[in-house]
């Protein structure tokens, strides 16, 4: 069986600090995988390593069977077009309007005409429940929830096979968080996109995840379905779900930002 993402024995460190010790992970087509763990355990670093946005120390990472580190720059860019990312803060380009943000990859990556790219962008704005009247607004004029939805529209504009969500509901109110969760489910289930999400939000995990992995001390120490997550007696998982300060997690983990 071919996996959309296949990671074997990934190791990544920053100076003397080992962030990812031995990470192995396989994600099936159309599956939504959620990575959970304490803040600073290297979850965002894992996504950056998968996307070749930072160099790894050892191990292999394949996306759709291709090892990005071994591809030429042109092949790498073409492979990345099949991956969408919703960054933690949205990462919208401040100097571009909403429509130019969404069109950016279509114009410069896919080489589509401005007219065609704008047509697709308006369509994607609708898909994330945003009115086209905000198309000419700039990111600074939008609320946090709107920024996340515009970033999601940008991430799905190129019709990716895999989409990465880095803490998609952080800093949002419960209603907007619910809306973002709905959109993520819509993207993965309706469009058949595989997803890797990082979240601390238990509601999100229950909503968007097919399979969940708990990252601790540079490796996955527990994996299971979201149903298993709720009934497991693994002390780390129990403490994570309950949010209790009593348990094996000490809260001392702090990996650097990549």
């Amino acid at each position: 069986m071919s996996f959309v993402i296949e990671i074997e024995h990934l190791k990544k460190s920053f100076g003397n600090k080992i962030v990812l010790r031995d990470v192995s992970l396989k994600i099936n087509p159309g599956e939504s995988y959620v990575v959970i763990g304490e803040s600073g355990t290297g979850k965002s670093v894992l996504i950056k390593c998968i996307l070749n946005l930072c160099e790894i120390d050892s191990g292999t990472i394949k996306i759709n069977g291709k090892d990005l580190a071994r591809l030429s720059q042109r092949e790498k860019f073409s492979a990345l077009l099949k991956c969408g990312v919703l960054f933690q803060g949205g990462a919208l380009f401040d100097s571009l309007s909403v429509i130019d943000n969404i069109s950016f990859g279509l114009i410069h990556g896919y080489g589509k005409s401005i007219k065609e790219a704008h047509r697709i962008s308006i369509e994607k704005l609708g898909a994330v429940n945003l009115d086209q009247s905000i198309a000419s607004s700039f990111p600074a004029e939008l609320s946090g929830g709107m920024k996340k939805r515009v970033a999601l529209a940008r991430a799905i504009a190129t019709d990716p096979d895999i989409i990465f969500f880095d803490e998609p509901t952080t800093g949002l109110d419960p209603i907007t968080s619910g809306m973002i969760n709905e959109l993520i489910v819509k993207c993965t289930k309706e469009f058949g996109i595989s997803a890797v999400s990082i979240t601390h939000d238990i509601t999100s995990i229950k909503h968007i995840g097919d399979r969940v992995g708990l990252l601790h001390d540079g490796r996955f120490i527990w994996e299971g379905t979201k149903a298993e997550l709720l009934v497991t007696d693994n002390p780390y998982v129990r403490q994570f779900i309950s949010g209790s300060s009593e348990g094996p997690f000490t809260g001392n983990t702090n990996s650097p930002r990549p």
Partner: peptide, 18 residues
């Protein structure tokens, strides 16, 4: 620098732009 620390440069790479 602001683009770097707010991940806009990573976003640009993800959209296949050098």
């Amino acid at each position: 620098g602001t683009m770097k620390v707010t991940e806009q440069i990573d976003a640009m790479t993800m959209l296949s732009v050098n």
